[in-house]
Design a protein around this nucleic acid. Sequence first.
DNA 1: TCGCTTGTTGGACGATCGTATAACAAGTGT
DNA 2: ACACTTGTTATACGATCGTCCAACAAGCGA
Lengths: 207, 207
Amino acid sequence: MSTPAFTRAEPDARRQSLIEACARVLAQVGAAGVSVRAIALEAGVSPGLVNHYFAGIDALVAATYGHVESQVSEAIGAALDAAGPRPRARLDAYVTASFAPPVASGELLATWIAFWSLARSRPEIARQHDEQYAQFRTALEALLAACGLAPAELRHAAIAITALVDGLWLELCLSPHAFSAAEACEIARAALDRLISTSRSTGSDSM
Amino acid sequence: MSTPAFTRAEPDARRQSLIEACARVLAQVGAAGVSVRAIALEAGVSPGLVNHYFAGIDALVAATYGHVESQVSEAIGAALDAAGPRPRARLDAYVTASFAPPVASGELLATWIAFWSLARSRPEIARQHDEQYAQFRTALEALLAACGLAPAELRHAAIAITALVDGLWLELCLSPHAFSAAEACEIARAALDRLISTSRSTGSDSM
DNA sequence: TCGCTTGTTGGACGATCGTATAACAAGTGT
DNA sequence: ACACTTGTTATACGATCGTCCAACAAGCGA
């Protein structure tokens, strides 16, 4: 009886470990294979503990999405900070970070897909997606404004760039053989050059 | 005993009806709620019949994806034909058709998400996705070549435009409140204008 | 040192899953 | 009119699901 049968953890730490275990399970077996027992096994705890911390499996997946999304935001934010103050350099950093680990990875895509699955049938989760997406787009609009875009063009440009990067990210994670991360970077950068240039074809603003 | 207990169907017709029932179930309950029994109930047949025509639920979902994908190709192909011979008009038709029913719809997204879920864990299904995607991109490259793009730029331009349209399509289906289909059209058209213009800023090649 | 709180365990429960299979009947050729 | 083929049904089976709950023990205050 020298080794304890289990160890008590801080509620927040335990929640966090369950969330991370859920992310690992999602990455390994996908959205279809995720279950309370698999998550508990991955976290090294009893199955009953999952229901003690989360109302249900859906709530845990939603919390996992929130955690993964904040991880992505953090990684991109760090890349932006490392890029310095120049707006165009920060925009490039956003693109580069989007196509490199940990943002671009099949494991992350699994979590995203599972969340999209839930969002289609659960209005509350759909709202969580909408809010996080709108928040990210607002930040991108601020960055584009710093790049010199006209206020009237900000909204559409942010939507277009978000869609482009997300589309490249999705396909890159889903089938890595179609094109490489370096190619995705190059494609996105070239497209950005054309998308954020002012309508009057002056091409001497950023470099 | 005047009404028959069941009616015998042509094997191909029965397969087709099961595929369509699977698509409806996917649209209604999502990837998580799809099951042999739900599909059989939707198709009005016995549960055992599903396994009589398909090796398993995964095979049926894969077949459903193939069917839905061909429906999308057909819808876009029809839009291209209706647009006439001018390459730029055909490109615009591709964009317009991508953001209108039946291509842009939450039900279709449900099928896509279910298929992505499977593709992450089943290599054979991942290969099916790769092939269909590569095929579509090749067709787009041909259209871009007709628009006057240099051969060296075709590959990257096709990847960029596919990613842009897919990203807009995904977000439009996932959260219709963020922006409208008309806005998606406008954004994609404006981006296309900038993406397919030749590097030397001559704007008089196609119109 | 002892008792209390509560995080944690581990199994029970009913529901539902995918699959397999025997019985049935519809349609066809003879 | 009859037998045969086979599409179709209905059910049974084992596995696994999410949920629940009573018992246990780890850590803390008295």
